[in-house]
Amino acid sequence: MSLSNILEDWSRYRKDREDGGFHDYEHMWGMAIDLNKCIGCNACSVACYAENNLPVVGREKFSKGQAMHWMRIERYWDEPDLGDDRISEFNQHGANFIPMNCQQCNAATCEPVCPVAATYHTPDGLNAQVYNRCIGSRYCSNNCPYRLRFFNFYSYYEDAWPAPLEMQLNPDLSVRDKGVMEKCTFCVQRIRSVKDKAKMDNRPVADGEAMPACAQTCPTSAIVFGDLLKHYDPDTNAPETKVTKMWRAHQVELGKPRQNKQNPELRGYRVFEGLNTDPCVMFLERVREV
């Protein structure tokens, strides 16, 4: 390790910082989740457990709040005692569901606070977590307004998969040890293999080719996944991705803390976008008849 090496490293580091910590985006993976379609069946959550080697922590640790569900279904009941008959009527229609996975914010609050830069933004527009670099200060989770980061409070792998269950672990990604933060990656291992395949075939990644486990599993196709950067290109005649189409149809745009919709009836919104986190997941509000 020479002095010139050090200086070179340093200047590269500084340059990356000035560029905003990431390079030009190749992709911007995003989602559109239609809450009208969500039936709260938890299949996405289960699929996530299977795909991403999430440990099943058991009843005791779950009740202590030490579970590892990257994709969780949040249930909200209308309050029955608000004094409004109309609202209590909704209760008979059941709960409201909202599937929450990492929102892959473009201005992620978790990234600047990590002391060792274990979480950063990739050229894919993903908010990546480097397990090997993580020291477990847990500041990222504290600073996530969505609370979508999960910490390995134990060496869960030791008893999460008693033999022969360890045979079903996904070999495409690691099993995490204690003391490491983790969260939804938009199934980065799938995106990676799709990108590699497209590169070998010398073609761009097609829409729908990369598909996270939750979107694949959703029985009502409530979750649409795709590249938010792929707009219609008149030169190559490349079509717009489905997710971009939905974002455009609902007049939700990236990079805005407040959407300027011409039509207030449009259902698209992003969770806590007023905090200027610029999340890449758009939800379509549920419409309920009275």
Partner: peptide, 15 residues
Amino acid sequence: NVGMGPANLNWPHMW
């Protein structure tokens, strides 16, 4: 040896 779990740290009580 065991991890941060026995300290009753949990999600969201990371600190």
